[in-house]
Computed example of a mutant assay.
Amino acid sequence: MTRSPAAPPDYWSVLGLEPGADAGSLKRAFRAQARRWHPDLNGNDPLAEERFKLVNEAYAVLSDPRRRQAWEAGGAGSGSAASEPQDPFATGFPDFEDYLDALLGDRRRPRRAVDADADAGFDSERDPEPADEPQPPRQGSGSVTASPPPPPPVQASSDQESLVELTPEQALQGERVELELADGTAVEVWTPPLAGDGWRLRLAGVTPGGGDHFLQLRVRTEEGLRIDGLRVLYPLELTPAEAALGCQVVVPTLRGEVKLRVPPGSSSGRLLRLRGRGQEWGELRGDQLVEVRIVVPEQLDEAEAALYRRLQELATDPDRP
């Protein structure tokens, strides 16, 4: 971004502040704007890089009394080409958290509990308010201090996932889940009520580099029942003969075993309903769905193979009525 030295930007407006704001407000505004425009968190915005540099420049000028006084006197705070500090982002942008640590002098704990809204996702502000004022580079009389070493390379964001196992009761009521992220941050999450097996809950922007963390919910019983809100799902495996001729079977439910009649001609994927055998929520009670799955033996003896061949012949006989 090219700007005339005679007309520098309004740094107060860049940070969204009124002129003369105190040091605490300046630091909070810089933190918010830096997070908003950090290129690592705005991969789809081509203007984020230049905007982020401008936010960094505005903070560097306004937090340095000498540069701020020069800027307010006639726009020389950012300096001419000879006095302007070397671009610290010439070799890339650091990870957002490391960047704030280095510039603001934060000393954060290795772990910190974060309250999360797992249903809607969240962006966690993981930096506590710094205790000390920043010490930006100062310009001496007739000389310029050496620029700091290049920042570390940007850490690419990556999504992560954790498996969370819940009982049917926990899934129904909602459960508090504690987990530790890769960077040591402790996160506390409440799962939503009426959750189900296979649900994925998104925690937005909490992994190192700004990626998302997903919670994969597993809600199953030892008998093979899968919970989905108020509904209960159960896969029923049948032999081809049982599915074709019909049969009576015993299936598990949340309140004990029941007998179920499978009608003849039941194909894989057919759903049989057991009314009122699902989860209970006040006066509401869900159903249990039994899904038919036809299982073919892996190995057949000679007699079984002969019977299947005969069935195949009958099925493909053009003279069969």
Rank of each mutant, 00 (worst) to 15 (best):
M1W: 04
R3W: 01
D22G: 14
K27Q: 14
R28H: 06
F30Q: 02
W37V: 05
Y59H: 13
V61G: 02
D64W: 03
R66G: 11
G74P: 06
A82P: 00
Q86D: 09
F89W: 07
D95G: 14
E97Y: 08
G105V: 09
R107K: 10
V114P: 00
A116T: 07
D119C: 07
D119A: 15
D119G: 12
F122A: 12
D123C: 04
S124Q: 07
E129G: 08
R138A: 15
G140K: 07
S143P: 00
V144R: 14
S147V: 01
P151I: 01
P151N: 06
D159A: 14
E161Q: 14
T167H: 08
E169D: 14
Q170M: 08
G174H: 04
E175G: 00
L179D: 11
L179K: 05
D183P: 06
T185K: 03
A186T: 09
V189W: 02
T191R: 04
L201P: 02
R202Y: 03
V206E: 05
P208R: 09
H213N: 01
L215S: 01
L217E: 05
L225A: 04
L230H: 00
T239W: 04
C247F: 01
V249I: 07
L254V: 05
K259S: 15
R261Y: 05
G265Y: 06
G269F: 12
L272C: 05
R273M: 07
R275Q: 13
G276T: 04
G282Q: 08
G282I: 10
G282C: 11
G286P: 06
V290S: 05
V290Q: 06
E291P: 00
E291Y: 00
R293T: 01
E298D: 15
D301Q: 10
A303S: 13
E313V: 04
R320G: 03
